[in-house]
Design a protein around this nucleic acid. Structure first.
Lengths: 122, 122
DNA sequence: GACCCCACTTACTTCTTGGTAAGTACCCCA
DNA sequence: TGGGGTACTTACCAAGAAGTAAGTGGGGTC
């Protein structure tokens, strides 16, 4: 995702900057409805993400105050990730866009791979 | 902007793929409310965009059936860009996200430049 | 004839993002 | 003592998105 230059010229610009990483909306989705997840849980829920990138995006979301990171100093210690209220409001704002994408996902995919076939290649 | 791998795992993934270029939401905004614009108009309305990137993003939006490109074979010939109905529905779906970004733009900007000052540097 | 506008196209470079793979440090269990 | 789990960090590399700059080919204007 391409970062917009600051200052943002409009709200969408800013919002997409927050949400534009390859795995960020998926992380937001995984933490929806007040869900709490550990680092290793998220790894398992996002097949294909590397540890490096997952941490990177979690840190960025935390820096944006969208995700809350809490360390539990128990034995053994662990870390829990959840949405902040701010993150929750972001997820709400994303819902119409998600619905649009879901509604048109076939069209979008088709336009994105004009060289491929939808039928099985023999 | 980072492209998601196909097939998309959720609608947001797909939508952000359509809208994720650096200038795309700005183009969508410029063409909002049935507005029609020429290439040169858009260049002027998006200060900082290069011709190469503007055309590239217009072509991608057209390939996604979000933007309509019409050539007028008059003398002199020219080209007009406008939103399709599909693009219009996308803009509608983007509005809540835009409102969220606008509401929190100060917070987002502040979190995005922790090393800079908001007061003028002397 | 020189210059501007329109709508691009092309070649080259840089910068950012993400991916790969390995290492760290600590704990528990058998 | 070897293996597994937790939560990272680090270094290196590749792909792609965007930026720069120049060229194209038409027309119209002074």
């Amino acid at each position: 995702m391409v970062k917009s230059k600051l200052p943002y010229v409009c709200g969408i610009d800013a919002a997409i900057d927050v949400v534009g990483g390859k795995w960020k909306v998926l992380i937001l989705w995984a933490l929806d409805h007040g869900t709490t997840r550990r680092f290793a849980d998220l790894r398992r829920e996002l097949p294909g993400v590397s540890e490096k990138v997952l941490i990177q995006q979690l840190r960025e979301l935390a820096a944006d105050e969208v995700v809350h990171r809490e360390v539990f100093h128990e034995v053994p210690p662990h870390v829990e990730y959840s949405l902040t209220e701010f993150g929750d409001s972001l997820n709400e704002a994303l819902r119409p866009l998600g619905a649009w994408g879901r509604r048109h996902i076939k069209t979008i995919e088709a336009n994105r791979r004009p060289a491929e076939f939808d039928i099985a290649t023999g």
